[in-house]
Design a binder for these strands. Structure first.
Lengths: 343, 343
DNA sequence: AACCTTTGCGAAAACCTTTGCGAAGTGAAA
DNA sequence: TTTCACTTCGCAAAGGTTTTCGCAAAGGTT
């Protein structure tokens, strides 16, 4: 009568199989790995029992042995924004292909939580990190430990230290430039832009694209049309209000991200102005929101899922080759024209 | 001269500390755990070095020893919907308090992926699962292994096997009833409801609330006003179209979830009808979307973050007490009245 | 002086897996 | 009969931690 008392255990181990068959643990291990040292007959017998008993190697033991947990730490500014959750989907997609799991932490847009997340994830022995910087982050030394020890690290969207760390970004300059030119083509001349915090690369690049766009349309740069917000709805609403109260109002506005654009939209409506008749509006927004508002919003769409996939691919490239130049993946955005910017 | 060659190692271990101080590993372990067997002097010395060298116990080794990984598996139908990402935030919040991490898998609304996610998460030795069923799921035996072995399991929102498994749900019956009565109070009499797949508890409950609501308003139930969709935008749009093509159109519509409601909204506009003048609309939708559409949408809001927190709490209650009656947490929804349902 | 108790610490097992090395057994060649 | 080669498998270590048991020295008691 076979001993099945251990079947109530959560998981069975090599030892259980070895005891049942009456061989040593090492024989079982080798049989399951098709090692030539083990006779074909014994191999088959062991593999059959392992299959019946639904044996799977204990990943903790493997992690201890190989010093590899098959876990990727992911840090995002928040979990509930579609932009990030979609990127996470992309990361998960590639991670799963490679037999990795992701452990997600949210910085809540604070530097403090970002730092503690880095620490905690490293403590729990993730093999590396994929990170989008928080809005507050202006110092970057909490990544020293990763960089100096060659622990895989990838930044996406909001990035830093590009000489040392591979990044995935979109071509923000081109995106802003496209929007500006789109406005111009559709007859708008007083084009305003609401930027974000100047220390963020995305903010700098989008502002640059705005300026280049104006130049390529031979429009003069008017400092009062370059507004700033901290990316909160309230601050974006205030920036919009300032624009709308100018003696010469802009006739077209775009803003750094979707939160800001939707706040701007509300503010414009609150001022009793029509979109796009009085003011045209274009956003860096995601697909779903843009089609649901009224009027439907022309916007730059990010290839979010692909961004996540690319970030994960850069991660695995680091896992494989230790020494490598940090790559930069630059993805193109798409300008989807809807009603909010066409008279 | 202290040997610092191992400082390039990713992590330091008890062995490193022991070697440096010149005591055994067990002494170091005990000192760090404030075991009374170790002299105060030695304890202090060891703890000081451990702090300096930034020692943290290897969670893999601990997991192996204690048979506990401090990981919770979470399975959601998708990652990109605000409803789920917000719930995940809530789960993470409580998990972090308890020193646990969450590992997230998405079923993509398919039974197949749900089953494989259960298997894979168990393989990677999570201590239990928090799950929202996929839309396809009508068989539930892939949870047998958890239930029979006493592995912690919690369902939320879309649930099954309530006699055996603790669940977190909202009071869907009351929510639907509230909407129906709200319509009635505001003068609408031809109230239609677009339901979801009948095997889902949320669908059943919301339909029941609709019927009870009609009854409590002394309105007759008209079968043609009870439509059905599979929760995709296309199917919801078709359901809406059927309602709008009825000889006697409804003057108020609500639908099972936000995806369906937004699809209905587009369809109503496409038919050239005004909201709320021609047709009133109320949704099971989340805060952000509802305020961004035009007109702003009256809707039932879910306490998503709290749902996640409650789910996690139920989880930890199982971790602590092995034997316990499965609890049911029923949270109340809120009807937030905006323009879409008030003439 | 002989015995007992306390204090302070080390050895080893346990959790699970892989793998280099060595050993036992068998058959064949010298 | 001895030696050699080959097959087939076990031992032990390593990875990091906790914990049971046990040992030695120091102190106190009779």
């Amino acid at each position: 009568m076979p001993d099945t008392s251990f079947m109530s255990k959560r998981h069975i181990s090599l030892k259980d199989l070895a005891r049942e068959i009456g061989v040593s643990i090492s024989t079982v291990s080798r049989a399951l790995n098709n090692h030539p040292d083990i006779s074909l007959e014994m191999t088959k017998k062991i593999q059959k029992l392992a299959a019946e008993w639904n044996y799977t190697p204990n990943p903790l033991a493997m992690g201890l042995l190989k010093q590899a947990t098959r876990m990727i730490g992911v840090i995002v500014p928040d979990l509930v924004t579609h932009f990030y959750s979609s990127i996470i989907s992309g990361i998960e997609d590639v991670a799963e292909e490679n037999g990795y799991y992701i452990v997600i932490a949210s910085s809540n847009e604070t530097l403090k939580k970002e730092i503690s997340s880095v620490e905690n994830l490293l403590k729990s022995r993730v093999e590396g990190l994929i990170v989008c910087l928080s809005q507050e982050t202006r110092t970057y030394d909490h990544f020293d430990r990763l960089i100096n020890n060659g622990i895989p690290l990838v930044f996406f969207d909001r990035v830093c230290r590009r000489e040392e760390v591979p990044v995935v970004v979109v071509d923000n300059v081109e995106a802003s430039l496209k929007i500006t030119r789109h406005f111009y083509t559709n007859g708008f001349r007083r084009i305003a832009y609401i930027a974000g915090p100047p220390h963020l690369n995305i903010s700098q690049e989008r502002t640059l694209g705005y300026l280049l766009g104006l130049e390529s349309c031979r429009l003069d740069f008017r400092p009062e049309y370059l507004e700033k917000c901290d990316m909160s709805p309230e601050s974006a609403a205030e920036a919009t209000a300032r624009l709308l109260n100018l003696p010469e109002k802009p006739d077209a506005i775009f803003a750094i991200n979707d939160t800001a654009v939707f706040a701007a939209m509300k503010e414009i409506k609150a001022h009793g102005l029509r979109i796009p008749e009085d003011i045209a509006l274009v956003g860096f927004a995601d697909e779903f929101h843009s089609t649901v508002v009224d009027p439907q919003l022309t916007s730059i769409t990010h290839p979010t899922f692909e961004m996540g996939q690319e970030a994960a691919r850069l991660f695995f490239r680091q896992i494989e080759n230790q020494e490598t130049e940090p790559e930069q993946v630059v993805l193109k955005t798409k300008l989807v024209v809807r009603k909010s910017s066409v008279k």
